[in-house]
Structures are given as structure tokens and as C-alpha cells.
Nucleic acid binder design. Sequence first.
DNA 1: TGAAGCCGTTGACTTAAGTTAAGAAAGACC
DNA 2: GGTCTTTCTTAACTTAAGTCAACGGCTTCA
Lengths: 191, 191
Amino acid sequence: MDNEILKYLSKYIPITKELEEEISKIEFIKCFDKGTVLLEEGKISNECYFIIKGCIRSFYLKDGEERTTEFHTEEQAVVPSAYGSNVPSEYYLECIEDTITGVGTPELETEIYQKFPQIESLNRALGEAIMAKQQDSFAEFKMASHEEKYLALLKNRPDLLQRAPQHQIASYLGIKPESLSRIRKRIMNQK
Amino acid sequence: MDNEILKYLSKYIPITKELEEEISKIEFIKCFDKGTVLLEEGKISNECYFIIKGCIRSFYLKDGEERTTEFHTEEQAVVPSAYGSNVPSEYYLECIEDTITGVGTPELETEIYQKFPQIESLNRALGEAIMAKQQDSFAEFKMASHEEKYLALLKNRPDLLQRAPQHQIASYLGIKPESLSRIRKRIMNQK
DNA sequence: TGAAGCCGTTGACTTAAGTTAAGAAAGACC
DNA sequence: GGTCTTTCTTAACTTAAGTCAACGGCTTCA
């Protein structure tokens, strides 16, 4: 099976011949160079992405300063919150690496859900699971010290620290680059 | 329409006679006194709740200290992250007011989804919308000062500050009760 | 090769939150 | 009514993050 999206789906639901044909037919792969901006603040977004390879950073501007909200990597879906709603986006999507994605649209989604209701079921179940996980990690995050947040990131997504520049990591953690630098120094000295 | 759940559903999808009969038949209303613990750490949970009236607080224990993760109020669903999964819960659910809820189970859910796929579609769509909102507010929360977090809560959920004791609000904001007290004093003096 | 920018680090200073402890106010219970 | 508990506030001290500024390393590009 050389289709990444089918490979992903097969983890959760049986892939029928019919489903395989349909998905192969409609899958729409796009490649983006590092630095490509997929969505800008104020623009309407009608695409969502499933990352096959690479990293997409979402961030918004506050007082001219970039605030990173997420780093999306392999096997993750990127659904702009304004996706399909005709509401201008409040944030940016930027590829911080060369990135290969499957691209979806609201129309395509509707079509697939009609033909394959089990995929909508899957998305509901996955969505609920992701939401519960989000709530848990939000709770952890709220009470953690900045150092603990950094250590948690180091543990859960060690690759990110290699893939993204440190000041972006800092804004993702909700701290200033200077603080992150000091935290790293402190941890080094403790060892 | 005297059924709160139907009233809620009718905001999003047309209520057919058949749907109305079915939901009325299966709806299971329970009332709980203030102080009732609906779920304890370590217990399996097989119920989810839709709050008609009241307030349910979810929290977990860390080093013997309660950490409030959410205050669920009217028209909100409370789905324990371990719901239907046979995994012991990591947190508690407690009614901090007399509370009236609709109660759901995984079996009931499956049954409803089979009979009324449009409800599963609705749940998927609502889930995605809630998730996007969660991500946005998480992003705001990360970069906000403690004072800004308090002011945001004051603005978005002013009722909570009347309904829950201050130390629970503090742990919900991720700060110590002493800090919240100081922040409130600071704000009062500024006015 | 040299100038300009970006990035991470460091230092000095300010500000605010955590910690510990104590006390006042309000409620619950007997 | 009086005691006990819970809740909130206040104070003194410690610790760490924000702010501002400077510097060195590295890349880019003319």
C-alpha cells in the first residue's frame, strides 16, 4: 500500500477495495518548499492538510510578535479554525520544512462522508479522543513551571527541538527566548 | 418542547417526529445534590453527562492538591476521557451545585448513531468546532499574564466567580489562591 | 571580503508569583 | 451559643521570568 492516507486509515478501519479505489482517486497530494505560507491572517481558508512528511507551524501576530500555537508534523491533520466557514483566518500557517501533504476541501469531505459514513464515525471518535487528550495536556500545562513545560516537550516531542528554531519553541511554550535560554543553561548545569 | 436535550439539538438539526419520540423515550434524567462525586480517580466510567442545570467540576490530585481542570455548566457535555474505554479515570467529577443532567452511555450512543446518523454528523462537526476553539483559547492562555487570565475569565464566564469558591478558580487558572487574592486586590486598587 | 541580519546567550534590573505563616471572616455542626 | 472548618487575605521572604541592552557566532548577499 503506497498511499499514506490509506495506510493511516487502515490503522482504524478495514480498507475495502471500493474505499481504496475511491480514496486513491481523490487524494490530492501537494508539496511545499520550506518557508511557504499556506494561510495568511485575514484570508479565507478552504483547505485542510494531512501531513505526510514535514512540519507546518501555525502562529498569529500580537503586537507585531509571532506567537506559535502549534507545530504540526507527520500523520497530523491541520484544520484551520476558519476552514470552510468563510470567516477570515486569525492566524498563519507556514511550512518550516519542505512538506508533503494530502489536501482536503469541505466539498471533498462531504462527498467522502456520504459515500463512506464509517469515515465520519472514525473522525468523530478520533476527534473526541484528541479533544480529551488536549484537555488533559492543557491541565498539565496550566500548573507546570516553565522548566517543566520545556522538559515535557523534550520528552514528548524531542524531534521538534531539532526541527524548529529556539525562539519559535519559546513562543510555543509561552515564554521569552531569553527565559528558554536560561532554562536550558540551568538544566545543563544540574546534570 | 419541554425536553432540554431536544431543545439543544433543535438549534442544529431539524427535529423529526420520529427523532423526538426516540429521544424522549431514551432520555435519562438524573439529579445530584451539591457535593456528589460522580466519578473518582481509579474508577471506570461508563456514563457521560449533559448538564441541564448546575455545575460539575473536574479535577485531579497532584501531591495531595486539587487541580481544577474544568467547570462544566448548563448546555455542556461532560465526557470523561476514560468514558467507555475501561481505563481507570485519572480525575474526579464533582457537583459543586445541585445538578440536573441527561445521562448517556456508550451503548446508548451507538444505538442513537445507528438510528440517526445525522446526530453523529452533528457531533463530529460540533467536536471539530469545539476543538478549534480549544486550541485558540489555549494559545491565548499560554501567553497571557495571570492577571490577564483572570480578567478573561471575568469577561467570558462571569457566573463562575459567583458559583465556585476562589481557591478552585485559582487552581483552574493555574495559580495559587494567594496570587489570585493579590491580583484581585491589584485590580480593585486600579479602579 | 566585508556589511547586514538573524539567532542565541549573558548580565543587570524590575516585577510578580511561589512559599510559609498567621490571622480574620463566614458557615456548618453540635 | 460556641467550636471547628473552610475560605480568603495579608505580610515577609525567596525565586524566577520579563525587560532592556550588549555581544559573539553564523549565514547571506552584495
